[in-house]
Design a protein around this nucleic acid. Structure first.
Lengths: 156, 156
DNA sequence: CAGGATCCCTAAGGATACTG
DNA sequence: CAGTATCCTTAGGGATCCTG
């Protein structure tokens, strides 16, 4: 039905020219289910160790390992802080590159909501105006780009 | 630095209300590196078995297993065809839901290109006008939504 | 609360070889 | 070309228990 997306090309020639594939590089960091769920939680505002483990439904050891990896990869920051009179706590927050990762989460969310999850489920909204949010593919000239009009190329 | 994204909330209450998390549901299908790379290839226009295995750099058995899974999940279609005088071939193409998955690929691409891969690497362009393409978060009223103004909610 | 240590176990996936 | 079959290794990740 959808004819074809982009002319067939030999990607390996392209990857060879640049040294690495951005998608593969990304998948090396968040390619596991656990890492992606941690990023989901962080995107929802979770900051505490136990909350990550509990809400993402994983063992503390798993949460620990993946939180450390994501901190090392620069997507999360770990700061320990202490409110006066309380004990020390650690908190994990999205860094700038972590925030930049949110569109990935959103794209996964959007696809799953449409093709996998129950209808009338969750939506993501623009807090300021209340309207639903979706990810769009748009070019720098402002056109919304149909998915069959994408072309990959070397930028130089 | 990026303060926080969305007010902290207990997602489990939300997931319980709807039955499943769209992101988890999506990760069950394409949560493995191999499956995602197959989707990358399909998005680039690869259609033949051997090309998938070779370009995604995986053993034929692995390619076989994941192609079958993705066909079963409805993201790819498998058709065998026969050009007159030639032998039968099988070809895998994106279905409608497979095309809808492209923004995920694009978001991963965009993040990796910015934070992981070499600069001056690959870009994705709008074939019709030549300008670079990126994924944007935009609400239905047309605002481009800063990532710290997203709010998740139950749609009913 | 925020983990570290240990154990175990299964599934993902590479390598190699073979077939219609 | 489009796979199947077999073997084998590793990493992901659950369960449990312990600690500052």
């Amino acid at each position: 039905m959808p004819a074809q997306l982009m002319p067939p090309l030999d990607n390996r020639a392209l990857w060879a020219a640049t040294g690495s594939c951005p998608i593969e590089a990304t998948m090396e960091i968040v390619g596991s289910r656990a890492a992606m769920l941690i990023m989901r939680e962080a995107s929802y505002g979770t900051t505490r160790f136990d909350d990550f483990a509990e809400r993402a439904g994983m063992a503390p050891a798993t949460a620990s390992a993946h939180l450390a990896e994501l901190v090392a990869a620069g997507l999360l920051s770990r700061e320990s802080y202490q409110e006066p009179g309380a004990r020390r706590r650690a908190e994990y927050r999205l860094t700038e590159s972590g925030v930049a990762f949110v569109p990935v989460i959103l794209a996964l969310f959007q696809w799953g909501a449409k093709y996998r999850a129950v209808p009338d489920g969750l939506t993501v909204a623009h807090a300021a105006c209340g309207a639903d949010v979706r990810v769009e593919t748009r070019c720098t000239r402002g056109h919304e780009v149909p998915l069959d009009e994408l072309a990959i190329r070397l930028s130089r």
